[in-house]
């Protein structure tokens, strides 16, 4: 993004570098599939339910399952994840996982090396955006992506602000379907 903005043009949200806005679930799925060591960080907003009674966490678990992506459970999410029959790959709070991720020598959740794509899902927008800023500035070795219904300007890739929740859930369904398709 910064390459196409003249130096004197600054966006109000972040300054210079802001997230690439992606509305197409296929494009999102491709980015995820391309990643070698992705990580999914889930937060407490996923403990809420959709109008038809589905827990948002199920979307996250389906995304992880589709591509065998390790899950980092933050805040109090571990309990619900276990209840849904999944063992999170690690339990860190959001600032802790961000702190670890910014170390290029960190071995990652699976001890196979630091992650190259980190997806954040269900973290409050203010805290999430600040954590993403940390990674944007201090973790040039990885890319970040968000799955919540709001635009996160400090991420590398973000969805737009969805005015209607149904549109956002549709996006997530589309993403899961595309991830399941394989390459």
């Amino acid at each position: 993004m910064s390459a196409v903005i003249p130096r004197h043009r600054v966006n109000v949200l972040t300054g210079i570098k802001s997230a690439k806005l992606i509305e197409d679930p296929v494009e999102y799925a491709n980015l995820i599939k391309k990643a070698k060591r992705p990580l999914l960080v889930v937060g407490p907003l996923l403990l809420a339910s959709t109008p038809d009674g589905k827990i948002l966490m199920e979307y996250a678990l389906n995304i992880a399952k589709a591509c065998n992506i390790p899950i980092c459970a933050t805040a109090q999410t571990k309990g619900k994840i276990v209840e849904l029959g999944v063992q999170p790959d690690c339990v860190y709070d959001v600032v802790e996982i961000v702190n670890a991720l910014k170390d290029p020598d960190w071995k990652g959740v699976k001890k196979e090396g630091n992650h190259d794509l980190v997806m954040f899902f269900g973290i409050r927008s203010d805290l999430g955006n600040q954590g993403l800023s940390t990674l944007k500035h201090f973790a040039p070795h990885l890319k970040t992506m968000t799955l919540c219904k709001h635009y996160f300007p400090h991420a590398s890739y973000s969805v737009p602000n969805f005015k209607k929740d149904e549109k956002w859930l549709e996006f997530l369904e589309g993403l899961i379907a595309n991830l399941r398709k394989g390459d």
Binding site: S2, G15, I16, K17, V98, T134, K136, H137, F138, P140
Partner: peptide, 23 residues
């Protein structure tokens, strides 16, 4: 210290604004 910048820039003086992204 663990830093989470709000903004990519510094605008403290008339040398700037300065872009502090990417090192």
């Amino acid at each position: 210290p663990f830093y989470a910048p709000f903004c990519d820039l510094c605008c403290f003086c008339t040398y700037g604004k300065c872009d502090l992204t990417e090192g």
